[in-house]
């Protein structure tokens, strides 16, 4: 993976991120780097701090300490909208879709195209939003009969696809996916993994949180393991899947730790 011709420069850098919830130290100074056009797998046991770290990056949590850099520039997020403005999009585990609205409405939720402004009230451009959604689904090879279908009519895999499509619709720099394959059928998982490959081929930079190590192995370029709020491992994904899995599990359960010295120092 290191041999790729694309220049490897960091698009996101987190330095020394700390976050406490009362007496619980959820994150104890985590560093994370994501390069341009890289798929990074973030793994760890329950309560390792994966979701907390990603919520810091997506603006849902404000860190107690540490710095966030986007393309080398320091940023501060106080809400998900701040992060969104910097091109950081999150795909939530429960998809965060409005079931009562159709596919196009969900893709453009909160960012509706307006064709006429009547004072504070904007008149929507339905046609533009539907056409754009059609093109988007086509580009991502997502198979949904009509952009006018209500989301409640879609299968689990289709809903995940809509959630991912929405995250990519507005020139996102970084897409964070929280357990994108949890609660999906085997066939649907394959489709979502294909979708992630399509996104990467299109130049996207992606962070995936997943319990399913084989998913990380199949689409990821690099893996970071968190344990008890610390980074314990950071390496390219290589070798055969059994060796990879053993390595990941060893770090997840605490049998190995690459950064112990640094933190104790």
């Amino acid at each position: 993976m290191e041999s790729t011709t694309r220049t490897r420069s960091p698009i996101v850098e987190l330095r020394g991120i700390k976050k406490n919830f009362g007496a619980v130290q959820a994150l104890r100074g985590v560093d994370l780097m994501l390069n341009h056009n890289e798929v990074l797998g973030l793994v760890g046991d329950n309560a390792a701090g994966k979701s907390t770290l990603m919520k810091v990056l997506s603006g849902a949590y404000i860190p107690d300490d540490g710095k966030i850099f986007i393309e080398g520039r320091e940023v501060r997020f106080s809400s998900p909208m701040d992060a969104r403005r910097e091109g950081i999009e999150m795909v939530y585990q429960d998809y965060a879709l409005a079931d009562n609205l159709n596919v196009a409405a969900n893709v453009f939720l909160g960012r509706e195209a307006v064709r006429l402004k009547l004072g504070p009230i904007g008149v929507m451009d339905h046609h533009y939003m539907e056409q754009e959604t059609k093109h988007l689904l086509k580009r991502l090879k997502i198979n949904i009969a009509s952009v006018r279908l209500k989301v409640e009519r879609l299968s689990g895999g289709q809903r995940q696809a809509v959630a991912i499509a929405r995250a990519t619709a507005f020139d996102a720099k970084v897409i964070i996916m929280d357990e994108p394959t949890a609660a999906l059928s085997v066939a649907a998982i394959e489709k979502v993994l294909d979708l992630i490959r399509t996104l990467k081929a299109g130049g996207a930079s992606i962070i995936i949180i997943s319990h399913r190590l084989e998913d990380i192995y199949h689409v990821g370029d690099r893996m970071i393991v968190l344990r008890h709020g610390r980074k314990v491992h950071d390496s390219p994904i290589e070798g055969d899947i059994h060796e990879f899995r053993e390595r990941a599990v060893a770090y997840m359960v605490g049998a190995r730790d690459d950064f112990r010295e640094e933190t104790l120092a």
Binding site: Y92, A98, D99, L109, I121, M124
Partner: peptide, 19 residues
Amino acid sequence: TVLGRHIYAVGGNPEAAEL
């Protein structure tokens, strides 16, 4: 209108709307 769309989005899934 956008306002109308947002009213229905809040009704359908308030958390998703907020996010």
